[in-house]
């Protein structure tokens, strides 16, 4: 690998930055294990997805320009979230479709951006992992990764390399968990109904742990599980792949 190409910018996403930094650390760990030099550009904050999805194009553009500038020059940009990666890959070029001065940079960034599990499988080509997690788990396919980026077999392939991990497929895995960004607070009752259907599916697998590659969905799942006082735990897939499954799960305290 030549210089520049083996330099990977980790775009952690604001949700990981704020809520679950261990996902960022786990991602960096995995990328380093695969032989890349990981950098975390300081100018990164939020990719602007909430503004874009709320129709606030002006603010979305401001944050997109900032993100594009922060991530300039890296051979690869890796994101531990399908929806934020999707924003960089699909939405930025749409956002700047009529701004020729930014469109080039947006398309360039789009071509360099990868969701974490897809990058690990398709670019890094990693085959083995030094991780073990002796649990029965199910994997929740977050919609934006599944349909927007074709992420389906990659996380499953990676989980196959985790020692002791038993993967149970979720029924109706194509169905949304009801998070949907601002949707979950705009229509909480509908959102919760969808989550309860998802929890039925999760319970039906008999898994004690639910994994996903999307922190938004995970906060939603963990939040509802916790409200119900259910023992099922939730982790980001990167944490398990990086052998960090012994730390408290999402929403789990010291008690």
């Amino acid at each position: 690998m030549g210089d520049g190409v083996d330099r990977v910018a980790l775009f952690a996403t604001c949700l990981v930055d704020l809520y679950r930094p261990s996902v960022g650390l786990a991602s960096a760990e995995l990328l380093e294990q695969a032989g890349y030099r990981v950098e975390v550009p300081e100018g990164q904050t939020c990719c602007g997805q909430p503004a874009w999805n709320s129709g606030d194009t002006r603010r979305a553009k401001t944050l997109a320009r900032q993100t594009m500038a922060a991530l300039e020059g890296y051979g690869y940009v890796v994101v531990p979230s399908g929806s934020c990666a999707g924003t960089l890959i699909h939405d930025y070029p749409q956002l700047f479709a009529e701004d020729p001065e930014d469109l080039g940079a947006a398309e360039d960034l789009a071509s360099r951006t990868w969701e974490l599990t897809r990058f690990l499988v398709e670019v890094a080509g990693i085959t083995g992992l030094d991780a073990n997690f002796r649990h029965k788990v199910c994997y929740h396919d977050a919609c934006s990764g599944l349909r927007g980026l074709g992420i389906k077999h990659q996380p499953r392939q990676l989980l196959g390399s985790v020692d002791g991990l038993e993967l149970q497929e979720l029924p109706n895995t194509e169905i949304c968990c009801g998070f949907g960004g601002t949707f979950c607070v705009k229509y909480p009752e509908i959102s919760t109904r969808l989550m309860d259907d998802k929890l039925d599916a999760i319970r039906s697998t008999g898994a004690d742990t639910v994994l996903a590659g999307e922190l938004g969905c995970l906060l939603h799942i963990a939040g509802r599980l916790k409200r119900n006082d259910e023992p099922i735990r939730a982790y980001h897939i990167a944490e398990i792949l990086a052998d960090m499954g012994d730390q408290p799960a999402i929403g789990e305290g010291d008690d």
């Binding site: 952690a12 990981v16 930055d17 704020l18 809520y19 679950r20 930094p21 261990s22 996902v23 960022g24 650390l25 975390v40 300081e42 979950c184 607070v185 705009k186 909480p188 009752e189 919760t192 989550m195 906060l219 939603h220 963990a222 939040g223 509802r224 916790k226 409200r227 999402i250 929403g251 305290g253």
Partner: peptide, 18 residues
């Protein structure tokens, strides 16, 4: 709107950038 039906998981305490 969130906590009416769901708990809000607490953040781990430090930011990733920190």
């Amino acid at each position: 709107a969130w906590t009416a039906s769901r708990d809000m998981p607490a953040p781990q305490g430090s930011t990733f950038q920190q």
